[in-house]
C-alpha cells in the first residue's frame, strides 16, 4: 500500500534521516521504534506529506505522493506528538471545526462527532474546555480529531507520551480495536518497546536517522537467538563493578538504569559465578538476578549498545 525508498532529510548541515526504506501493507499495524531524536517524527512528517524530503520517494498504491499529496491526504489521519487542537475550545467545538474543514456538515457531522466521542470515551465531557482535561483525555481527543474523516491509514506519533498507565492502556486498546475491528492501517511510532510489542505486526527500529533493523517481532528477537538477558538488581550501583562487567569475557552489552544492570550475554556461558565474585570485590550488594528471554528492548540494546530511553 505504502512504499518509502531511500528517504533522506537534512536541515542545513544536519542529517536528520538517511536511507530510510519501509513498506506498509493494507490493514497492517507497523511500529517505528527508536529513542528520542532517532528521526521518527521527521520520517512520519515526510510520509504524511507535510515535510518535503531532501531525497527519496514515497508511493501510495504506486502513485508518487510527493508530487501529488492529494493522492494520500484524503485517506490519511495523523495524530501528532503534540496536542494539535485548540485548548481554549471544547472537545465538541474542536471536532466540529475539524469535521467541517474535512467537508462534513449537518446530521452527518453530528453523528460522526458522537460516534468518535463514544469511541474515545469522552461523550460525557464533550462540552468541557480541552484545557481543563487531564493529560490522558487530551491525548484521546487528539486521536479523536484525526478519526473525523474515516481515515484508512492512521499515523500515530508517540500518542501516549506523558500520561498515566490507565489512560495509556485505554489508548493502546483503542488503537488495537481501530486496527483489528475497523481495519485501519496503522504506523505507530514510540520509544516504549512494550507498546510496539503489544500493537504491531512488524517493527522498524531507528537510531541516528537510520533504520537499523526491521521485521516481525519474532524475526527481530531471533537476532538474539544466541544470547540471553541477565538483569541484576543491586543495592547501589558502583563504577568499579560496571568496569569489571564491561571487561568480562562473554558479556556483550552492559546497560545501567537506576539500581539495575542489564547484560546481554552469550547463551550457555556460565557467568553467574564471575558476576557474584566481581560484586564481592567491589562491595556491591546484589539483591536479585533474573535470566530472561530477549525483548525488543534487548534487541535495541544489542544493536546500539544503548537502552531505548537513554
Amino acid at each position: 500500500m505504502l512504499e518509502v525508498k531511500n528517504l533522506k532529510k537534512t536541515f542545513k548541515k544536519t542529517v536528520a534521516v538517511e536511507d530510510v526504506d519501509l513498506y506498509i501493507e493494507e490493514g497492517e499495524s507497523v511500529g517505528l521504534l527508536g529513542p528520542n531524536g532517532a528521526g521518527k517524527s521527521t520520517t512520519i512528517s515526510m510520509i504524511s506529506t507535510l515535510l518535503p524530503p531532501t531525497k527519496g520517494t514515497i508511493k501510495y498504491k504506486g502513485k508518487d505522493v510527493l508530487k501529488n499529496p492529494d493522492e494520500l491526504r484524503p485517506i490519511l489521519g495523523v495524530v501528532p506528538q503534540d496536542i494539535a487542537i485548540y485548548g481554549e475550545l471544547s472537545a465538541y467545538a474542536n471536532m466540529k471545526f475539524f469535521g467541517k474543514i474535512y467537508g462534513l456538515s449537518g446530521s452527518q457531522l453530528e453523528k460522526k462527532i458522537q460516534e468518535i466521542l463514544e469511541l474515545v470515551g469522552l461523550s460525557d465531557r464533550q462540552k468541557d474546555v480541552v484545557d481543563t482535561y487531564s493529560g490522558g483525555m487530551k491525548r484521546r481527543i487528539n486521536i479523536a480529531v484525526a478519526l473525523m474523516h474515516n481515515p484508512e491509514f492512521l499515523i500515530m506519533d508517540e500518542p501516549t507520551v506523558g500520561i498515566d498507565p490507565q489512560s495509556r492502556n485505554y489508548i493502546l486498546n483503542m488503537v488495537k480495536r481501530l486496527n483489528g475491528e475497523k481495519g485501519i492501517t496503522i504506523l505507530y511510532t514510540s520509544h516504549y518497546m512494550e507498546e510496539v510489542e503489544k500493537l504491531c505486526d512488524r517493527v522498524y527500529i531507528m537510531d541516528h536517522g537510520r533504520i537499523i533493523a526491521s521485521g516481525t517481532k519474532e524475526e527481530l528477537k531471533n537476532i538474539l537467538s544466541n544470547e540471553e538477558t541477565i538483569v541484576i538488581e543491586v543495592a547501589e550501583r558502583k563504577q568499579a563493578f560496571t568496569d569489571l562487567l564491561v571487561s568480562q569475557k562473554g558479556i556483550n552489552q552492559v546497560a545501567e538504569e537506576e539500581n539495575n544492570y542489564q547484560l546481554i550475554v552469550s547463551k550457555g556461558d556460565q557467568l553467574l559465578g564471575e558476576i557474584f565474585e566481581q560484586a564481592r570485590q567491589t562491595n556491591v550488594k546484589i539483591k536479585s538476578i533474573h535470566i530472561q528471554t530477549p525483548t525488543l528492548e534487548d534487541v535495541f540494546l544489542h544493536l546500539t549498545g544503548r537502552k531505548l530511553r537513554d
Binding site: 484524503p74 490519511l76 495523523v78 503534540d82 496536542i83 494539535a84 475539524f98 474543514i101 474535512y102 480529531v145
Partner: peptide, 14 residues
C-alpha cells in the same frame, strides 16, 4: 504551526 494544528488543516486538503 508549532502545535501541528496547521499541518492538520493542510492534510484536510486546504
Amino acid at each position: 504551526k508549532e502545535q501541528h494544528v496547521f499541518g492538520r488543516m493542510m492534510l484536510s486538503g486546504m
